[in-house]
């Protein structure tokens, strides 16, 4: 418990900043919704001149931008992107931070098992993500409410918002795993950005090329906003794949961290 509360104390500010960034992004981009929905016909006309591959990559072949949920789905892709960078950054740094700040000889010389340390740290990332998502769901709902007119599918909106934490958990788990297999991590953010963008670009490629295989390797495809809006549900197979990957990466993290030599100074 003491490690968990220490971790939370050190990370809560960063979590709030990133939550602020997510909310701010939604707040700003929703300003674009009224004009876009008003002139939907013109905009769709302009967009239809874009090459099909580009429209697919941006997700605008399947999303109706003139509808509130369609537009929210369009900008939600970028919410996923920002949220994933935060999750990945937290995942990578939570275990490697002790090595980078050279405090590993302090913490691991205490009467705690490595299992306890890993659990406490993973739990701290999980808590931050949960709090972040609760805040995000509440605030994004408040923002959306300002634009809500007649019909609005609350269930689909919630499904969309709930996909954020699932994608984040994927990247957090990937972060844990990378942090125990990479020998020296000098700075966390560049790696996080690079990894998240690689997966994001894979998703765009998958959409653009209509490649059914690429869809399976990136969580951005598992929780594709257009699919969620059009089907009104998640796809069970993707849900399970995502969960399995998260469990395998987290399990491996334990196994490796319990066995590895902690680098000295």
């Amino acid at each position: 418990m003491n490690i968990l509360s220490q971790e939370l104390k050190m990370s809560v500010a960063s979590m709030l900043y990133w939550t602020g960034a997510l909310v701010f992004f939604v707040f700003i981009f929703m300003f674009m919704y009224p004009p876009i929905s008003r002139d939907a016909a013109i905009i769709e006309n302009v967009l239809s001149n874009f090459p099909l591959e580009l429209r697919r990559a941006l997700g605008i072949t399947t999303l109706n931008l003139s509808q509130l949920l369609g537009f929210y789905g369009f900008i939600f892709v970028y919410v996923l992107l920002i949220g994933s960078v935060y999750a990945m950054k937290s995942g990578i740094s939570v275990l490697s931070e002790e090595v980078r700040s050279k405090t590993v000889d302090f913490l691991l010389a205490k009467p705690v098992s490595r299992k306890t340390v890993v659990s406490a740290k993973i739990l701290s990332v999980l808590s931050n993500l949960i709090v972040q998502n609760i805040l995000f769901i509440v605030i994004s709902y408040l923002i959306i409410s300002a634009y809500k007119q007649d019909y609005f599918d609350m269930a689909v909106f919630t499904l969309l918002d709930l996909s954020l934490i699932q994608v984040q958990l994927f990247f957090a788990a990937l972060g844990f795993f990378l942090s125990v297999i990479i020998k020296k991590i000098k700075s966390v953010l560049p790696i996080s950005l690079a990894m998240v963008f690689v997966f994001f670009i894979l998703q765009m490629l998958g959409e653009s090329l209509n490649d059914p295989k690429l869809v399976y390797i990136t969580p951005f495809s598992y929780f594709n906003a257009a699919d969620i809006i059009n089907n009104g549900s998640y796809q069970l197979s993707f849900l399970l794949i995502n969960l399995t990957i998260i469990l395998i990466l987290t399990g491996s993290t334990y196994l490796i961290y319990l066995r590895k030599d902690l680098p000295s100074i």
């Binding site: 050190m10 700040s101 405090t103 000889d105 302090f106 010389a109 205490k110 009467p111 705690v112 100074i265």
Partner: peptide
């Protein structure tokens, strides 16, 4: 290890602690 270490006091050769903490908070954490 964990069991034994409750009775060990260790001073590493290079000392590094969490930079943002106050000394008293670090000692209480310890």
């Amino acid at each position: 290890g964990p069991n034994i270490r409750s009775d060990i006091g260790y001073l590493p050769s290079e000392v590094f602690y969490y930079d943002n903490m106050k000394v008293i908070d670090l000692l209480k954490y310890s």
